[in-house]
Design a protein around this nucleic acid. Sequence first.
DNA 1: CACTTATATTTGCAAATGCAAATGTTGCAT
DNA 2: ATGCAACATTTGCATTTGCAAATATAAGTG
Lengths: 151, 151
Amino acid sequence: MYRLTESFPYLVNRVGVRIGEAFSRRLEARGVTLPMYRVMAALWEQGDQRLGDLAAVTSVEMSTLSRLVGAMVGKRLLSRRRPEENGRAVEINLTPQGRALVEDLMPLAIRHEALALRGFTPEEVARLKQDLGRVFANLVAYEEEIAPPPP
Amino acid sequence: MYRLTESFPYLVNRVGVRIGEAFSRRLEARGVTLPMYRVMAALWEQGDQRLGDLAAVTSVEMSTLSRLVGAMVGKRLLSRRRPEENGRAVEINLTPQGRALVEDLMPLAIRHEALALRGFTPEEVARLKQDLGRVFANLVAYEEEIAPPPP
DNA sequence: CACTTATATTTGCAAATGCAAATGTTGCAT
DNA sequence: ATGCAACATTTGCATTTGCAAATATAAGTG
């Protein structure tokens, strides 16, 4: 028998929403929104990226991201320039201020995650993350079955 | 060393967004949005509820939900009435049409979940869902530490 | 019983989102 | 070279969202 509240998508969404809200409240005091944090953390981790890559990494729609990046450039957190070798792309990077800010926020993120995972052993955490990775891979594989990339 | 893309909130969000998008595309053909489906499935599972309860169950903000319910009442999927014993509350329920529709959609949801969890054993699925429940409980407990409910 | 306080939902309004169309670039084929 | 398809991002516009204020009902208090 089917129950929404025991379904996997429901359980994931519920955790995702709550964990996001809680962290957003933490970030608020620093004048940063959660999407902004994610963008900065992605850039910190992977270095400069094009908009499309960033959209894929952060799970944010490209048009939304385009505007968000614009606002963050305005705040001097990011830089945005067209590379010479490919003038239709946009290379986005952290400014020194953006880097300093995100490095300042990272301990917050670490504490927040630890809080969410209270009571889990390191092995359980590793397994849980691995499972989420497996699910994600399933979803990607499924989307490719539906709309196969051009051969 | 901290990496956004290995953090639990990131991994959960990524799966939540993708799984929601994929299911939304499925629902689109039936003229239903994902929040609508969640509301109907919650009502199907738990019977009639007040708006606040529904908001808690579905992780949707109450004002958003109020409007959504209004739209769904307009589509004859839900009914909404003030109970006699407490005239400030609103009791929301499925109409026969709403019930028929959600029952029609549930097989879709089941298939969709199975797809996301391909390759997982039943034990792994159970453990994964349990873990998500534990995390949720942690988040709720944490929020209560921050803002303790009136004694 | 008037009057404040608490509960439950709705509404106003500004900001965020997402699709589709527009813009700007590049590369390929004649 | 010129035109045409492909790529990458931005913008227009309608919808959705979320906070805060407004509304409506109920319950306590002197």
